[in-house]
Write a protein that binds this DNA or RNA. Structure first.
Length: 426
RNA sequence: GGAGAGGUGUCCGAGUGGUUGAAGGAGCCGGUCUCGAAAACCGGUGGGCUCUUACGGGUCUCGAGGGUUCGAAUCCCUCCCUCUCCGCCA
């Protein structure tokens, strides 16, 4: 949720920032400003009416207590009350429209975010060297099939396209990666591990910004719950309506959840293999912190996600996303892209974002800067650490050998119990 | 799913139509005392919106949303959540 006071106090500055995302936002912000003016005008009227009503009501109480007659006042109050009801209705209508509009304005980008579409993304750094092959590296769907660890047809049979099945060491690889990542983040990076629900309610989806506009990206159940698209939603909303103590911050959680995405309209792109699927597994890092520290927290989160790739010995690059590429709630995002030798491309395996106070406003997550001080909104951040399918793609494609086996990086060996994936091994 | 009990401020806990934003206690903040601390004592202490340069004022808020009433924490309706018992079930 945008900060209405900020918009009101410095409208031009606010609009200029929003326009870097989308020039159409300017007129929508003007609409909001007008609604805000109306709201405050009606509010002043209705509050004046209520003030005089309260005064008269008090007088009635006094007279009744004293045994005096108050029928003249009561008659007066009856009409005043009707008038108030009328004004309240108008106020309610305006506020409803205002909220409707406000909920649909994305977070303005931070100044350091480059303006433009994907072509304006900035490469921050790279790590590792894409390996050179003495043979033609295969794509992961071929490797997965010949090793017998990936059953796409089976998944399509039991659920549908985009629901992969991992078999044997493939399944163990999924399980091992989840454990490896959670262990790394909890023991070395200091995160508190949580295991949240995979289904979320409407209020949670609104809190992190999936609703109202991104409803079509989620699966809905019959009783109005959504299958979570990312652990960010349940974990961030864990503290919805909370006021955190300053001593709790920064507060970091690491959570595994399956993630569900309808990917409506994405068909035809990246349809082979497991690059884009409807259900996948992900370990997510979520952080609550003070507004002053969110800049450095973003860098820390990014570093923690990078560490996963480094331990897995996967070459990657870090991109600072341009304004046109930012997610709805994000003020700044880094993407982490791992190299996939078989597909001969970079694949997004993680995304680290700072949401400033945008989600905190929606979800009403505050903190008290010091005992006795007024509460203020926290800043929230998250980073994938990491999403599994594309990590698996990179592992299979980069570490494949000419004989068809796949080398397992050292960090994962304890989790898999083997140093190499071989055909039909169990 | 059925029956019952209940949701009050940071926490515990009073309060069944009119100076109740809400007793009392704890906590927290400030002060007195002390070399310092503890204890004791005194004072202060919710949040949102809004008006005001400011001091300060107004309004809303007792799970959520509606309703009755001149007036609702208190009465009525709907929903949500927690607890107990029963049923069902991994």
């Amino acid at each position: 949720m945008i900060d209405l006071k900020k918009l009101r106090d410095a409208p031009d500055e606010f609009k200029a920032s929003a326009a870097r995302r989308d020039p159409d936002l300017v007129s929508r912000l003007d609409t909001i400003l007008e609604l805000d003016r109306q709201r405050r005008a009606v509010l002043r009227e209705v509050e004046a009416l209520k003030a005089s009503r309260n005064k008269a009501s008090f007088e009635v109480a006094q007279r009744k207590k004293a045994g005096d007659d108050a029928s003249d006042l009561l008659a007066e109050l009856k009409t005043a009350s009707a008038k108030i009801k009328d004004h309240d209705q108008r106020l309610h209508d305006i506020e409803q429209e205002l909220t409707h509009q406000q909920l649909r304005i994305p977070n303005p980008p931070l100044a350091s975010v480059p303006t433009g579409d994907a072509s304006a993304n900035q490469e921050i750094r790279t790590w590792g060297e894409p390996r050179t092959f003495s043979f033609e590296p295969k794509p992961h769907w071929d490797i997965g099939q010949s090793l017998g660890i990936l059953d796409l047809a089976g998944g399509a049979k039991v659920a549908g396209k985009g629901f992969p099945v991992y078999v044997g060491l493939g399944s163990k690889l999924v399980r091992g990666l989840i454990n490896f990542m959670l262990d790394l983040h909890t023991t070395e990076h200091g995160y508190v591990e949580v295991w949240p629900p995979a289904l979320i309610n409407e209020a949670s989806a609104r809190g992190t910004g999936q609703l109202p506009d991104l409803a079509n990206d989620m699966y809905v159940t019959e009783d109005g719950l959504f299958l979570t698209p990312t652990a960010e939603v349940p974990v961030t909303n864990l503290h919805r309506d909370d006021t955190l103590a300053i001593g709790q911050l920064p507060l970091g959680y690491a959570a595994y959840t399956p993630c569900f995405r309808r990917e409506a309209g994405a068909h035809g792109k990246e349809t082979r293999g497991i690059t884009r699927v409807h259900q996948f597994d992900k370990v997510e890092l979520v952080c609550f912190c003070t507004p002053e520290s969110s800049g450095e927290e973003l860098e820390r989160l990014l570093g923690h996600a990078e560490m996963v790739l480094q331990r897995l010995e996967l070459p990657y690059r870090v991109l600072a996303l341009a304004t046109g590429e930012l997610g709805f709630a994000s003020a700044k995002t880094y993407d982490l892209e791992a190299w996939a030798a078989g597909m001969n491309t970079w694949l997004e395996v993680s995304s680290a974002s700072v949401f400033t106070d945008f989600q905190a406003r929606r979800a009403n997550i505050r903190y008290r800067p010091k005992a006795g001080a007024k509460p203020d909104f926290v800043h929230t951040l998250n980073a994938s650490g990491l999403a599994l399918p594309r990590t698996i793609i990179a592992l299979l494609e980069n570490n494949q050998m000419e004989d068809g086996t796949v080398r397992i990086p050292e960090a994962l060996v304890p989790y898999l119990g083997v140093e190499r994936l071989t055909p039909n091994a169990r």
